[in-house]
């Protein structure tokens, strides 16, 4: 049988990202803030700091600390989320810190903390990636020195087909080999700051995944950059 053209539930091409939207400066109180959207997935991020770390025993005299806090609004998903901390939130918050830290130049801020609050307003999968994209923009908006930006995308393997920017329907894919979800965060220069995988994949295919992620994050980067530039023009 010849390979038939793979059909994604929402009709996208395998390497097609959902409609992206980005905006900087959405929360007036914050030192930096941004919104990032993949289709129906919307993330808000706000940065507060650098400010003195409390309690004092948490202070790091060598360098500044990045503290991320990822959370979903109760009505961002179909089945209401009970308010309060969850193991998933704790993990994603930490993963987000790791995704962002390599590009942050926070050596200059001993005993200080930079807080990043990420809230998912509406969810249709890839929320952590949208959150990281919003957070990177918010940090840049806050004027925290950064070597470069990071951009995040989830690559999926649905049965045997690789797709870019996984939606909820795709996450729940059951046919054939089922769904494998691979969220990846890359710096502008192509270094990996975040990589997770849930499912099954071969080494060869994983290499392909990285290639797709590189191309996708280059597109995401352009959207982030454009929004940051626009915010500068607004201030003029």
């Amino acid at each position: 049988m010849t390979a038939k053209i793979f059909k994604r539930p929402d009709g996208r091409k395998p390497d097609e990202i959902r409609k992206m939207e980005a905006k900087v400066g959405i929360i007036p109180n914050a030192d930096g803030s941004a919104m990032f959207r993949f289709g129906d997935t919307i993330a808000f991020a706000a940065v507060y700091g650098p400010k003195k770390m409390h309690p004092q025993h948490s202070q790091d005299p060598e360098k500044g600390t990045l503290r991320c806090n990822y959370n979903m609004l109760s009505f961002s998903v179909n089945e209401r989320i009970r308010p309060g901390p969850s193991r998933r939130n704790i993990e994603i918050s930490k993963i987000t810190e790791w995704a962002l830290e390599p590009v942050l130049m926070i050596g200059k801020y001993p005993n200080m903390v930079i807080e990043v609050h990420i809230n998912i307003i509406q969810a249709n999968a890839s929320t952590r990636c949208a959150g990281i994209n919003a957070a990177a923009m918010a940090l840049a908006h806050a004027g925290i020195p950064m070597r470069e930006l990071v951009s995040s995308v989830s690559i999926g393997k649905l049965d045997k087909q690789l797709v870019v920017d996984v939606s909820k329907d795709e996450e729940d894919w059951e046919e054939g080999e089922g769904a494998t979800d691979i969220p990846i965060t890359l710096t502008k220069s192509g270094e990996i700051t975040h990589l997770q995988l849930d499912g099954k994949i071969t080494k060869e295919q994983l290499k392909e995944v990285l290639g797709l992620a590189k191309k996708a994050t280059a597109k995401i980067y352009e959207v982030q950059k454009k929004a940051l530039k626009e915010s500068l023009e607004d201030e003029k």
Binding site: I27, A45, A46, Y48, N69, N71
Partner: peptide
């Protein structure tokens, strides 16, 4: 009815 004063929304609010 529940409310949450998100730390995102003000430097005064904490987790």
């Amino acid at each position: 009815v529940s409310a949450e004063l998100l730390p995102l929304s003000s430097p005064r609010f904490e987790n």
